[in-house]
Simulated assay, not measured.
Amino acid sequence: MLPLIQIGEIVATKRRALGLSQATLAKQARVGHSTLDALENGRIGELGYSKITRILTALSLELTIQEAANHRPTLEELMEEDRDDQSLDRRR
Rank of each mutant, 00 (worst) to 15 (best):
1 M>E: 10
4 L>Q: 07
5 I>S: 14
5 I>L: 13
6 Q>T: 06
6 Q>A: 15
6 Q>V: 13
8 G>C: 05
9 E>D: 12
9 E>Y: 10
9 E>W: 08
10 I>Y: 07
11 V>Y: 02
11 V>P: 05
12 A>P: 06
13 T>E: 12
13 T>Y: 10
14 K>P: 00
14 K>W: 04
14 K>D: 02
15 R>D: 00
16 R>V: 10
16 R>F: 12
16 R>H: 10
17 A>I: 03
19 G>Y: 03
19 G>I: 05
19 G>T: 02
20 L>A: 02
22 Q>I: 11
24 T>E: 11
24 T>K: 10
26 A>Y: 02
26 A>R: 05
26 A>W: 00
26 A>V: 02
27 K>G: 05
27 K>V: 03
28 Q>R: 10
28 Q>K: 12
31 V>N: 03
32 G>I: 00
32 G>D: 15
32 G>W: 07
32 G>N: 11
34 S>P: 00
34 S>Y: 08
36 L>T: 01
36 L>N: 02
37 D>T: 15
39 L>K: 05
40 E>Y: 09
41 N>C: 12
42 G>Y: 11
43 R>L: 07
43 R>Q: 14
44 I>A: 04
44 I>H: 02
45 G>E: 14
45 G>A: 13
46 E>Q: 15
46 E>L: 10
48 G>H: 13
50 S>W: 05
52 I>R: 08
52 I>G: 01
55 I>Q: 04
56 L>Y: 06
56 L>V: 03
57 T>Q: 15
58 A>N: 06
58 A>P: 04
58 A>E: 04
59 L>S: 07
59 L>R: 04
59 L>V: 03
60 S>F: 02
63 L>F: 11
64 T>S: 14
65 I>M: 10
65 I>G: 00
65 I>E: 06
66 Q>P: 00
66 Q>Y: 07
67 E>H: 10
67 E>G: 03
67 E>S: 12
67 E>A: 15
68 A>K: 14
70 N>A: 13
72 R>S: 08
72 R>T: 09
73 P>N: 01
73 P>K: 00
74 T>E: 04
75 L>S: 05
76 E>F: 14
76 E>S: 09
79 M>R: 14
80 E>I: 07
82 D>M: 14
82 D>H: 14
83 R>T: 05
84 D>I: 11
86 Q>R: 15
86 Q>G: 04
87 S>L: 14
90 R>W: 06
91 R>G: 07
92 R>Y: 08
